[in-house]
Design a protein around this nucleic acid. Structure first.
Length: 276
DNA sequence: ATGATGTCCTGGGCGC
DNA sequence: TGCGCCCAGGACATCA
C-alpha cells in the first residue's frame, strides 16, 4: 500500500535517524525478502556512514561514504521502526536491522515480504534494472500534460492500468490512481489512448495536488508517530473514493454512489455518474 | 512489442 | 471456538 507519499514520508522520517550516522552493526535475519539480500550486504555496510537519503519512485536509496547505495522498496507491508538500542528479542518479520553510532536501531519489518533490500554502486544506479526504464517523477518538472499524453496515446489498456504502469509515471498505486481519476471525472474503464490532450492537462495537476496533500498529511502524522513509538508506518489519510464503496461521491453536485469493480484482479473504486 | 494473466507472501476478516 | 477460504496489491515473469 505504500505509494509515493508514504515512501516520501518514510524517507523524511528516516533522515534524522540515519543521515551522517555510521552503521556500527547491520543484522540480516533473512537471506531473502522478495529478492535475495546480497551475500555481502553486512560486510559492505558495517563501519560505513550514510551521507544522503532520497526517494525515487517508490524506492528509498541510502548513499554511503563508500561507493555503495542501499536500495529499498517497502512492497505492500514494509515499514521502518526507529528505537533505542536494546536487548529485546526481535519481532516476527524484523528482517534487517541497522545499528547506528548514536545507539539507535532502525529496523526494517515486512510481514508479507513484498519489499526488497539490495545494494549497488553509485555508478550502477542509473542503469540498474530497477531504475533504467522508469518514467518521470509526478512531482518533477518533466511530468506534464504533454508528457503524459505522449506516454499513453498508443496504449490500449485502460487509463487505470496505464497510470499504475511505472513506465508511464512512477509512484502511483491503486489508491492514488482511484483518487486522481475521480477528481478528474475520468472513468477508469476508458482506454488510455482515448484520453485527450485536454484531459491529460487536467489530470496532471490533479495528480500533483493529491500527492502533495498526502505528503503534507504524512508529514504532520509523522510527528505523532515518531514521537510515540518510532514506527514509520502508514498514516491515516482520508480518501475520497478508495474503500468507500456504497458511499456518496464527494464531487461537487454529484449524486452518484462510489462503486467497486475489478480491473486486472485489483479493486477499482469510482463514481459511475460523474466519471465519464 | 504489447497486453493479459500468474506469482510471490502473510494477516485479517468472514462464513459456516 | 476454530477452521478454511479469500482478499489486499507492487512489480516482475511468463504466455499469447
Amino acid at each position: 500500500m505504500p505509494e509515493l507519499p508514504e515512501v516520501e514520508t518514510t524517507m523524511r522520517g528516516l533522515t534524522p535517524a540515519l543521515k551522517n550516522r555510521k552503521l556500527v552493526k547491520v543484522i540480516k535475519r533473512r537471506d531473502k525478502i522478495r529478492i535475495p539480500v546480497p551475500e555481502d550486504f553486512v560486510k559492505r555496510l558495517e563501519g560505513r556512514k550514510i551521507i544522503r537519503l532520497e526517494r525515487r519512485a517508490k524506492y528509498l536509496r541510502f548513499f554511503l561514504d563508500s561507493e555503495d547505495v542501499i536500495i529499498c522498496h517497502l512492497g505492500m507491508s514494509g515499514k521502518f521502526i526507529i528505537s533505542d538500542k536494546n536487548e529485546d528479542p526481535f519481532a516476527k518479520h524484523d528482517h534487517i536491522i541497522f545499528e547506528t553510532d548514536d545507539e539507535k536501531q532502525i529496523i526494517y519489518n515486512d510481514p508479507r515480504r513484498f519489499g526488497l533490500m539490495t545494494l549497488c554502486t553509485v555508478d550502477e544506479l542509473d542503469d540498474h534494472k530497477l531504475f533504467k526504464d522508469m518514467a518521470a517523477e509526478p512531482l518533477g518538472n518533466e511530468f506534464s500534460g504533454v508528457y503524459l499524453r505522449e506516454k499513453i496515446k498508443a496504449k490500449k489498456v485502460t487509463i487505470k492500468a496505464a497510470l499504475l504502469d511505472q513506465k508511464v509515471v512512477v509512484g502511483l498505486g491503486n489508491i492514488y490512481v482511484c483518487e486522481a481519476l475521480n477528481k478528474a471525472h475520468i472513468s477508469p474503464l476508458r482506454k488510455a489512448c482515448d484520453i485527450s490532450a485536454d484531459e491529460t492537462e487536467i489530470l496532471v495537476p490533479i495528480i500533483r495536488d493529491i500527492l502533495l496533500n498526502a505528503i503534507e498529511a504524512g508529514g504532520s502524522s509523522l510527528k505523532d508517530f515518531a514521537g510515540a513509538n518510532g514506527d514509520l508506518g502508514y498514516f491515516q489519510h482520508q480518501f475520497v473514493t478508495y474503500g468507500r464503496e456504497g458511499e456518496n461521491c464527494i464531487n461537487h453536485g454529484c449524486v452518484g454512489i462510489i462503486t467497486r469493480i475489478n480491473q486486472g484482479g485489483r479493486s477499482t473504486f469510482y463514481c459511475p455518474v460523474c466519471q465519464k
